[in-house]
Design a protein around this nucleic acid. Structure first.
Lengths: 341, 341
DNA sequence: CTGTTAGCGCCTTCAA
DNA sequence: TTGAAGGCGCTAACAG
């Protein structure tokens, strides 16, 4: 059924080597022969067997992606970008979904052990030193997406800047008492520092205009609406509660909004809320937030990996993509602004 | 670096054939030899090269998944189930994301052309007759998930029953005027008939208790909140508007809720709304809905495919998974129930 | 420029 | 029960 390179060679009246050469774009073929081979390929509807090719080449021609929280919309969006660029290449995609720490360990171990990928895209987590070392020993070209770190090239967001933008947006509205809720800085021990960077941005924005960093305004809790809700309630119980809250993820922003509603606070009159991510529901719930170019990180990360794979370069390249403030209905001036002035 | 079957053979003092035999669990090996080989494998940390294996076997040992709307939470959940069971097998996973009709055509064509998969999982769409024929000719074992049809084995939901349950839930609350909004019955020409089945369930439930099927209560529109919103407004403008609406997807239910809000209708006092799917936000928005076991369809579909691949059976097997009514805050008795009685 | 041939690593006969 | 050898389809080195 499926024809082989031999069939093509026979049909075109040439040797298999020649067919292989035109297949791989070698310039050492006369135009005439090349044409003969091309028509043979077309006539026979020949498609090279990738496995034979890989075996012979000693390459896997596949890119692995290891990503946690596979179900989160933000991750899916990145995967879409990755899939999109890989679809037009000879590379296959191999997805490793990490849901637990054990699974993470096993994934990294398997990847180097089975040697089934030439390149690896690590999404939203930072390989630790040991993992990085093994990856390099196994000669697996690695690029990180949505995480900083020192070992590999990366495509990331400037989370410090994003955190600063969010905070400045609130400051520009007239807020002085600004709360901050985020996930734990190194959530799940997965080693992503985006949360911390957003916090640093928050801090720097406040410091820049001489506002105090008040520890009672700063909270970390698991990445869920529910936990954010509980923590927001503690904000409201403060003698001098914040008039605005910057949540380091939209999901947590929703928790804050829910708590506000339960407390009878109107948004944005009594409380402003700004999130981070701009996931799909955020527009629906009218949340002001920081948008990051999710799809784009997937695309650029993959292109970067492909580039490195092709060039063999080993300089570490860092691409930083910008964030945008998306202003919707959950932020406004604080209620008592006019009274104070 | 990576050791080969030859290294193992030499180390164990046997021939490569023997190593291959223990690798593949042949019984034609003495226990003693088997042990020798096993320790050799362990000592050398040997892992067989899958590509060589595949080439030799003439099998791809990979499962393809073709799925539309890759970004929808419901699809992601199914993929999770698929990935989960495949992770413990020798099979690789190859995902084809369909976003347009052209892409769909190309995917099906490529899959048979390149012959890169042994088995195929088709999610939420029904292969048409031509596609089915080609798949069979190419000897690609296929299982459908979340779609009915006659060509292949499948794991699906009983959407008729689900539609009936949704409608009966409304009826039990005392509603007699029940609207129905769904996607087009064959949306995007992708050939999924779940929408139609939900409608059939709706119709049967009404008929069962002698309620009329009123065409002005039935609307189809693109799968989006916005379009559902517009259509809901047309419901409300009716001289005798429905007191409850069954939306065939949660997304559309949100559109109905939004319209109700704009119209000043209180939910569930003035209008009951029930959705379908139980996607993640639904709990947050307190939507009563029909839950379907998404992850489970992925798991069972994959297991079914693996089973067929192993047995070579060609009887068409259909697995139907149940749905559940998840009652939350958007359904209640109609306002005028007490007046009427 | 082109044909021939030796692997790539594994599985599977075929003898022994 | 086991070893040796041929072949899966392709690439690359070698000779011409």
């Amino acid at each position: 059924m499926a024809s082989t390179i031999k069939d093509v060679a026979k049909y075109a009246g040439v040797g298999v080597g020649t067919v292989s050469r035109v297949l791989n774009g070698s310039s050492l073929v006369s135009n005439e022969t090349r044409e003969k081979v091309r028509t043979a390929i077309r006539d026979l509807d020949y498609v090279p067997n990738t496995f034979a090719r890989r075996l012979s080449l000693g390459k896997t021609l596949t890119i692995g992606v290891i990503a946690p929280w596979f179900t989160r919309p933000s991750v899916v969006e990145r995967l879409r970008g990755i899939e999109q660029v890989l679809a037009d290449t000879q590379y296959d995609l191999n997805i490793f979904n990490i849901e637990t720490i054990e699974r993470r360990k096993r994934c990294f171990a398997d990847i180097v052990r089975y040697g089934k990928v030439d390149g690896l895209l690590v999404v939203s987590i930072i390989p630790n030193e040991e993992e990085a070392k093994k990856l390099k020993e196994a000669n697996i070209t690695t690029v990180q997406i949505d995480a900083r770190g020192y070992f590999f090239s990366q495509v990331a967001i400037d989370d410090i800047n994003g955190g600063m933008d969010a905070t400045n947006h609130l400051i520009a509205k007239g807020h002085k008492n600004i709360g901050f809720i985020s996930d734990y800085f190194s959530s799940n021990s997965l080693g992503n520092n985006s949360q911390e960077h957003r916090f640093i941005g928050y801090k720097q924005a406040l410091e820049a205009i001489g506002l105090p960093i008040r520890s009672e305004y700063i909270r970390q809790c698991p990445h869920s609406r529910e936990m954010a809700r509980q923590n927001a309630h503690e904000f409201f119980a403060l003698p001098d509660p914040p008039t605005a809250v910057f949540a380091a993820s939209d999901t947590q922003a929703f928790g804050v909004m829910e708590a506000a509603q339960e407390r009878g606070l109107q948004i944005p009159k009594d409380l402003s809320v700004i999130g981070y991510d701009d996931i799909e529901i955020s527009a629906y719930l009218n949340l002001t937030t920081i948008r990051q170019p999710l799809l784009e990180t997937g695309i650029q990360g993959t292109e970067l990996l492909l580039r490195i794979l092709a060039s063999g370069s080993d300089v570490i390249e860092k691409i930083i993509l910008p964030t945008d403030v998306i202003e919707r209905g959950t932020t406004g001036p604080p209620r008592n602004l006019n009274i104070e002035n």
